[in-house]
Write a protein that binds this DNA or RNA. Structure first.
Lengths: 324, 324
DNA sequence: CTGAAAGCGCTTACAG
DNA sequence: CTGAAAGCGCTTACAG
């Protein structure tokens, strides 16, 4: 690997001059610049990022912390982030916490030790400790997916989304409505989406029976389990089942298909978050599209404005839309 | 950010000693070690990776080069890689080439300038130039997905997989067989899978009409287009359509559904590569499972053996299996 | 317009 | 068992 010294001596200049042409900084005579560029060209020299980073405390690397690496949400988020970051010459250092909270905070220190220029964290819950560690690292950052007060934040309006979806169903004349949700540990998906559904039902004076207000996890299997509970609750079939996520809806569909209950004729399914899966699997799915890629882009943009020196905290709410 | 010097002075030792306890190298008296560890604990000191990397030429970072960032294949591959690499303390630097060949070679130099300890490249085609650049960088590396002679390589046996699948269909009594493939620029998926299908048909003395030997791209839309061509070829319906990828199979299914041709009753669908999508969408899909995550793990392991100093070139063939 | 020198934060022979 | 010193490859005041 060539170094700046070799380039300098081959070009007959000091390494200071080489550095100047590399960074387009300070004055360099045209003649010197050309000699240097020629040598760089010939040798295929690429400056050591480690040395630059040690010196400048910058790295052109952004850490992206994910709770799970292999989900459609994660990969769409990373895609959006990468689209805007790559255009500005940044690379992504991936951290998979595997839902471990310790790994989350630990990884933040590690990222800092690598002089990353910024951190984007996809959150699964709201935590004071995480917020503190994030602030302590003193690295520009943005949190995606859960509301963190006084931080750069990219979120969806989960409450309104769930409420709109539910309202739409009520408008369409549905009265017997069941809900497949997730636990309250997840604020956005657990608390807010359930809250939106309940609020819409209340406004319309529709009862949500306890047995039809299910709490599960994020996987397809859980949707099947929940659907089973609802069907076996002894309250008859609901007109429509609203699922907090599209994977839950897919699970519900699988159970209904298995029981030969026709979708959408006997039971209509509604979900949130357009996975490719649900789009092809479930007939007449009514769903809320959360444009994850756009959230990724916004997160990257918010990060860039911080890196570039602006420091006004801001929350970006990505708008959703209803799809039939 | 604390530095090694501050730790040293607070602990009343030289930075040499601090470095020794950090790296568990050389002799350190128990007393000194404890003082140092205490100070590290108190200050939350984390050594600068930039400085370490400049000095040691190592970084505990592995570059992962992907043709597309947001596909199920990519994310499963990365998951497998991360599972074994994270356990050894490595992090992943992600590079998305967006199918650009220039970005591919360019990114290799960039990764080298970051002192990555290794590179895993998910290839979409076989190229001498890429192979040369890869060798030039002189960084441990492994190529996944396409056969690269004389390199560390993780591949599937696409020819055999396609042949087995086709044989199975022939065994089951199917004779009118059509094929939805992709272009030959992709060696593994284009050339080899088609080769396997054709070989099985030849062995059984079954003709593959030109009109039923379609070449498209990797998306669902392309499967629809191909299916249309096959149906409209004027040769009647095939008994079974073999798709080179599961996404093509999904496209074919969509077209058939649209035309109210029943699957699997009128036309059976077979695919390769178990996407979650196809599993839920297509009834009675016969498919070849390529365990991508396992390929990722193997790639990471092959990389680690290189990093740890072993230098015997080897190709790992990940075995597939037939799923019904 | 140009270069000598200092310094970023580490590790590693080397000497004791 | 311990530390002083050199050096990794850059950038950046500073002086000319």
């Amino acid at each position: 690997m060539a170094t700046i010294n070799e380039i300098a001596s081959k070009a007959g200049v000091s390494r200071t001059t080489v550095s100047r042409v590399l960074n387009d900084s300070g004055y360099v005579s045209e003649a010197a610049r050309l000699r240097v560029l020629k040598v760089i060209e010939e040798t295929g020299y690429v400056p050591s990022e480690s040395a630059k980073s040690l010196r400048t405390k910058k790295s052109k690397v952004v850490g992206v912390v994910l709770p799970k690496i292999s989900t459609e949400t994660s990969s769409r988020l990373v895609k959006g982030i990468d689209d805007v970051l790559a255009a500005k010459g940044y690379q992504i250092l991936l951290v998979n916490t595997n839902l471990s909270i310790e790994k989350e905070t630990e990884s933040l220190r590690l990222l800092k030790s690598r002089n990353v220029d910024g951190i984007i964290l996809s959150a699964t819950h709201v935590s004071n400790e995480l917020q503190n560690v994030l602030k302590e690292t003193n690295v520009p950052n943005v949190v995606v997916g859960q509301p963190y007060p006084e931080m750069y934040n990219v979120v969806f309006d989960d409450f309104s989304a769930a409420k709109e979806l539910t309202n739409k169903l009520i408008e369409n004349g549905h009265k017997k409505i069941a809900y497949l949700g997730v636990a309250d540990t997840d604020y956005s998906v657990g608390v807010m989406r359930r809250g939106g559904v309940r609020s819409a039902l209340e406004d319309a004076n529709i009862q949500l029976p306890l047995e039809w207000d299910w709490s599960g996890t994020f996987d397809i299997k859980s949707g099947q389990d929940g659907m089973k509970v609802i069907i076996e609750a002894g309250l008859g079939h609901p007109d429509v089942v609203i699922a907090a996520t599209d994977r839950l809806a897919v699970g519900a569909f699988e159970y209904l298909k298995h029981k030969q209950i026709e979708v959408p004729k006997e039971v209509l399914l509604a979900g949130m978050g357009t996975s490719e899966l649900s789009r092809y699997v479930i007939p007449s799915l009514l769903t809320i599209d959360f444009p994850i890629e756009e959230a990724g882009k916004s997160a990257a943009e918010l990060l860039l404005t911080q890196i570039e020196g602006k420091k006004t905290i801001s929350t970006k709410v990505i708008s959703h839309r209803l799809l039939e």
